[in-house]
Structures are given as C-alpha cells and as structure tokens.
Amino acid sequence: MTLFLQRVFDSFANGSAYAALAVAISMVFRSTGVLNLAQGQLAMLSAYLAVVFAAGADPSVAFSGWLAPFATPWPIWAAVAGAVVISAILGALLEYTVIRPMAGDPVPTIGATLGLYLLVGVFVVKHFGGRTRFLGSPFPQEHSDRLLIADARLWFDSIGLTLTMLGALGILALLQRTTKIGLAFRAITSNRDSAALVGVRVERVVMGGWAVAAALGALAGGLIAGEINVRPNMMERLLVFGLAAATLGGLRSPSLALAGGYLFALAETLMSGYVGFIDSQVTLVWALGVLIVVLSLRPSGLLSRKSTRKTLQT
C-alpha cells in the first residue's frame, strides 16, 4: 500500500505538466484546427527565459545583459511569471505572423509549427550552448519539506506545483464560462463562420487563444524545471504525453485532456514502479502507442459526437 501511494504522489508533478500541455494543445486545436507541434519547444524556451530572469546580471548566463538595470536576481516565482508574460506575447505574435497567413490550411500550418519546433531548438542551442541550467522551484524543496502519509512521502513542491496548475486551469475554465471573451472563444470553437456573422472578432480571439496556450505551456515549463532542470530536450517527453492526453478528447475536450494528463502520469509511475523491465523510454513508447491507437480507432476521441457537441457548448 505504501509503494502504491508513493507512486501516486510521485505522479502529481508530471501529471500537472502533462495536463497543462494537453489543455494548451486542445485550446489551439479547438480554435484553429491546428495541431501545434511547437508547444513543447515554446515551453522549453520560456524555462530558459526564467533562468535568465532568475540569474539577474550574472554575466555567465546568456542574454543577462537584458537585465542589467536589475542588478538583483529575481525570485524564482517572479522569474517564472515574467517568462509566462513574455511567452503569451510571443504566442500572440506567432499566431499573427506565422499561423494567420496560412488562412486555415491545415497542411502548411502544421508544417509551420514543425518549423517553429526546429527553429526554437536551434535558437536555444546557439545562444545557451545546449547546457543544462538549474532554475529551482518556487516551492520548498528541502529534505524536510514533505508530508508523511501512511509512510509515503508527499513533497511540498509537488503539492505547490499541482495546486498552481490546477488553479490556473480552473481560472481559465471560469473565464471561459463567465466572461464575454470566454463566450466568444466558445462561439468560434462551435462554429467559426457563425461567430463571425454575429460580430465576434474571430482573428483577435484566436490570437488570444494562442497567447493563453503559450502562457500555460510556459507555466508548466517553468514549474517543472524545478523537478527536471532546464535543457534543450526537457519538454520533448512531456509533449508526447501531452499529445496523448489531448487525443483522449479528440483534441477538443479540455476536461478530458486535463484528466488524461494525470492518468498518463499515474500509469507511467505505476508501470515503472511495479514492472521491473519498464523504464522511462518504454513508457514513452507506450504513450506513443496509445496516441496511435486512439487516432486510428477513435479519431474523434473517447467522447461520442453528441457528448462532443455538448462539451463545445459548455
């Protein structure tokens, strides 16, 4: 029982990151029909930006000259928040300059996101040297910062990361349900042409969706960096699990994407804990297998058409 509970606790941090990426992917796909393959790389870039902010004027960190007016390094939470803001602006700019000119044609648009994936990776390696950086966590990480529940250890940083991500996703869901902007977003995901006919500024709403998706990815990248450190390939594995989780709802259900993120993380930790020959690479293959099977047998996701229409309306 203790081992099982420990594995459940261990899945919280990764599950939060998987869920955030899955919801971000789902948001972009719902509003534009585009599968954003660059979502993970943008989150990785934001983690490097957080490292720069946290380093202050340290000359050993690339681009630290940006922060010359700020001689004192930023607290980690402020560094992550700054990276989130910049990532939201970057996401909006990418939608305006790269995605919008494609006029909704899915093939070149997906190709463009793949190009962004490669470009961001090259940019980071060129300017940061591909070295692993340490950011740390905004939450307590000392050996004593934990709770013991039935002899299983629940770390404070895992609690903080999970609650932060759930809080951010909860606020996003609330805004979509209770604000005019949220109503406009739901309108274009239901019927883009009809939304435009009733006066919704579709392009502006889509740009906002890309900004929010980039901000969610940045938050996930900045917080999970305290668990896995910052390196050029840090989000590749997380992106695969995020994509697999998003496919559970046919890339259109944020609620199933959220649940899928935590389910995949739990399955990953249980498999690696109870099956001796299964390591991290094997669980990655398993996630890819689930992704292929769902897309092959049920491309619309686990929801029925009726349930999907209901989800889009809520």
Score class of each variant (00 low, 15 high):
L291D: 00
L258M: 08
P108T: 11
A173W: 06
T2Q: 12
A287S: 13
V205G: 12
L67P: 02
Q39P: 03
M207H: 00
A225R: 01
L175S: 07
V28L: 11
D10G: 14
R298P: 01
W77S: 13
A38D: 01
D10S: 15
L266F: 15
L116G: 03
P75I: 05
S64Q: 06
Q313Y: 02
S144G: 10
L256N: 04
G182P: 04
L291H: 02
V84W: 04
F264R: 05
F156M: 14
R305P: 08
A55N: 00
N191K: 14
P108D: 08
G104H: 08
L263K: 11
L223D: 05
S144L: 15
A78G: 04
D151W: 12
S137H: 10
S87T: 03
T178C: 13
G301P: 06
P140V: 10
Q313T: 03
A88M: 13
L223P: 02
G199P: 07
F128H: 07
A150Q: 12
W210I: 02
M27P: 05
F241H: 03
F156G: 06
R231P: 00
A68M: 08
L266W: 12
I76T: 07
T308D: 10
R100V: 04
G250F: 02
A78V: 10
P254K: 11
G250K: 04
A211I: 02
L37D: 00
S158N: 15
L303V: 06
E227S: 13
A196L: 13
S253K: 04
D58E: 05
L288V: 05
A218S: 08
I171W: 10
V61D: 01
R186W: 01
F123W: 15
A267V: 15
G129I: 10
R131T: 09
G289E: 01
G129Y: 12
G91W: 01
L119E: 03
A103M: 13
S300H: 09
L166Y: 11
A43N: 00
S11A: 15
G199I: 11
A19Y: 03
G136A: 13
V85G: 03
Q141L: 14
A244T: 12
P299T: 04
L35W: 07
V200E: 12
T162Y: 12
L302E: 04
A24G: 09
R252I: 03
D105H: 12
L219G: 01
I188T: 07
L174Q: 11
L67R: 08
P101L: 09
A246M: 07
M207T: 03
A257K: 00
V52K: 00
D145Q: 08
G40Q: 03
